[in-house]
Nucleic acid binder design. Structure first.
Length: 575
RNA sequence: CGGGGUGUAGCGCAGUUUGGUAGCGUACGUGGUUUGGGACCAUGGGGCCGAAGGUUCGAAUCCUUUCACCCCGACCA
């Protein structure tokens, strides 16, 4: 492509209102243009990168017998009513009516469409297992889009759905898909990614893994044990608390605490550690005005809402205590009996003594609480968030650390949630109708691109890996108004193109610094410079975007030299 | 949805306090001189100052309403 004709403007200055470096750099480099909050147009460089990522995904999906299909963006609401998700999904799903007043939705994921496609078209176990996938636009009306392509509302996603007769078969395929995902991320040049155990959230099912790029700007938190390899998303992460000396067990008594409501205030007033307190957190249960939920846990910990959701089997919301008999800031478990309230005691409280909790009346707390002595807890549950530097729940010897990550892909075992809700059956060996077990597998294409950018951004632009670079080569002739330079570079441009090398040809009559700056912003791995100086010795200067040492190569050898460099780089990524 | 911020040329910004015909840098067009790290001179085009109402002889500037975007939080595969 001729750079002089390329649509898009590169700028010297970063956009003022963008905080993520890779995002700002891509905006500055004319990779994309924002159309609305969380909605972007991709310009040629970004579109080329996306296409290459998609190609790699296709190759890996096809290798595990995936069959590419295409589901619609717009679906009738009935399909989503069948699965029950029309009601259970919130405002992220766009709903509208067509001109005949028929309810429609914009696809934000395609389990329903996948089952719709598969049921009645597959009827025998002999056709199973199979996996269908698509690469297509999704729309999710996020409450808060941010971070460029990291979290957007409209995005391209590869989503795949597999169907199996038995759990064993799904397990086997799930592992193959897991391996395919690792290859995809390696091949697009992502370095610092890991897989973690995850919560399956609205997708349903039990087993689920997320692939995470470890980075400071990540919105997710992951617990990692470097020793035994334990890795889990915060939503499901467990830990064993470090031992804590609660002090001497003593009789309980009420103490005046006045306006001290928050744990920190109570601790300060009574000169105790937050570990010596019992925190109470109240939740309302969505769509159930009768019931609510009250969680007690050690004061230094926080409630893990995902874990609570699983126990109460429903969505939870922060509750409004104003109309409740509970005294906000002074809630405690002692002597508390509430109708229609699920009381949960976190494992962190088990065996604790010398604790302080609310007295259920204004201005007072109770100190000297001994959990075993003063409370009759039937069962302790795990509803707290893992904390940094606690003991690993698996190896029980090392400590976990909490790190930030961007979720770049995830895979789920869905079980029969969708196939049974939507009444899909196939005949097994015995001629008996059985409900297939499903798996689903997603990768966000734009997010993968943004993640690689984040990992490879420097002050000059983005150092794209060879496999997804928008162009493999930047051709920068200097002093193009000199006939010899023009001739040599035009010839090299067509030679490279004829050999199938992707070249961005900077045919503009601009100063060297200007050209180099643009080339580095766009980030082709190889930069070729032809100038009167290099032509004196019939050579081309080769510079590498990754900082490797420059080389001078004779013009007659440059084509094979470039091809070999590309092949070597690709082989390295495909390893 | 709550809190904070910003809307003036493609991009980055000044001008708003104190109302008086719309500015700077950069990018873009033309001519010329340049050319190994974002060159220089000359000249030119481009903006209903986010939108709508209002006050005023006169509004980018004051008042009201509204919209959009950004950041933090809540939420989320």
């Amino acid at each position: 492509m001729l750079l002089s004709k390329m649509v898009g403007e590169r700028s010297k200055e970063n956009p003022s209102d963008i905080t993520i470096k890779s995002h700002a750099t891509m905006m500055r480099g004319g990779y994309m243009k924002q159309v609305a909050n969380g909605i972007y147009s991709l310009l040629p460089p970004a579109k080329r990168i996306a296409t290459k990522i998609e190609r790699i995904i296709r190759e890996e999906m096809d290798k595990i017998e995936g069959q590419e299909v295409l589901f619609p963006v717009v679906m009738p609401r009935e399909l989503w009513e069948e699965s029950g998700r029309f009601d259970s999904i919130g405002g992220e799903m766009v709903r509208f009516t067509d001109r005949n007043d028929k309810g429609m939705v914009l696809g934000m994921t395609h389990e329903e469409a996948a089952v719709h496609m598969a049921r009645n078209t597959v009827s025998s176990y002999q056709q199973m297992p199979f996996m269908i996938y698509q690469i297509q636009t999704k729309f999710r009306d996020e409450k808060r889009a941010r971070g460029g392509l990291i979290r957007v509302r409209e995005f391209t996603m590869k989503d795949g759905y597999s169907f199996h007769i038995s759990q064993e078969d799904l397990d086997k395929y799930y592992d193959r898909c897991f391996a395919a995902y690792e290859r995809i991320f390696s091949r697009i040049g992502m370095k610092n990614f890991i897989s973690v155990k995850a919560d399956s959230g609205m997708m349903g099912g039990s087993v689920s893994h997320e692939f995470m790029l470890l980075t400071e700007i990540g919105e997710d938190t992951i617990a990692i044990c470097d020793d035994c390899g334990y890795r889990a998303n915060m939503e499901v992460a467990d830990c064993i608390l470090n031992t804590f000396d609660y002090g001497t067990d003593c009789a309980s008594e009420e103490v005046f605490t006045g306006d001290a409501k928050e744990i920190s205030q109570v601790c300060e007033m009574l000169s105790i550690a937050s570990e010596n307190t019992i925190k109470a957190v109240s939740f309302a249960i969505k769509d159930d005005t009768e019931k609510s939920c009250l969680v007690f846990l050690r004061g230094d910990l926080e409630v893990n809402e995902a874990k609570v959701k699983k126990i109460v089997q429903g969505e939870i919301l922060p509750s409004d205590l104003s109309s409740s008999e509970l005294v906000a800031g002074n809630i405690g478990p002692i002597g508390l009996s509430l109708k229609n309230t699920v009381m949960l005691f976190d494992e962190s409280l088990q065996g604790a003594v010398n604790m302080v909790c609310g007295a259920n009346k204004a201005d007072f707390h109770i100190k000297g609480v001994n959990i075993a002595r003063d409370l009759d807890v039937k069962k302790f549950v795990n509803v707290s968030k893992a904390i940094d530097n606690a003991i690993c729940p698996i190896c029980k010897t090392s400590h976990i650390t909490l790190k930030n990550g961007i979720e770049i892909g995830n895979i789920f075992q869905l079980g029969t949630k969708y196939s049974s809700a939507m009444k899909m059956t196939v005949l097994d060996q015995n001629g008996k109708a059985v409900t297939p077990i499903m798996g689903c597998y997603g990768i966000g294409v734009g997010r993968a691109m943004a993640s690689v950018a984040e990992e490879n951004v420097d002050d000059r632009g983005i150092v794209w890996p060879m496999s997804i670079a928008p162009w493999q080569v930047s051709l920068c002739p200097l002093k193009v108004n000199q006939e010899s330079v023009k001739l040599a570079s035009d010839t090299l441009y067509s030679d490279l193109q004829n050999a199938g090398v992707e070249v961005l040809y900077d045919d503009r009559n601009a100063s060297p610094g200007f050209k180099f700056a643009d080339a580095e912003l766009i980030g082709a791995p190889i930069r070729l410079v032809i100038s009167p100086r290099s032509l004196e010795t019939n050579e081309v200067e080769v510079a590498f975007r990754n900082g490797a040492e420059k080389e001078m190569v004779a013009i007659e050898n440059i084509l094979s030299y470039v091809q070999e460099k590309i092949a070597t780089a690709m082989a390295e990524l495909n390893k």
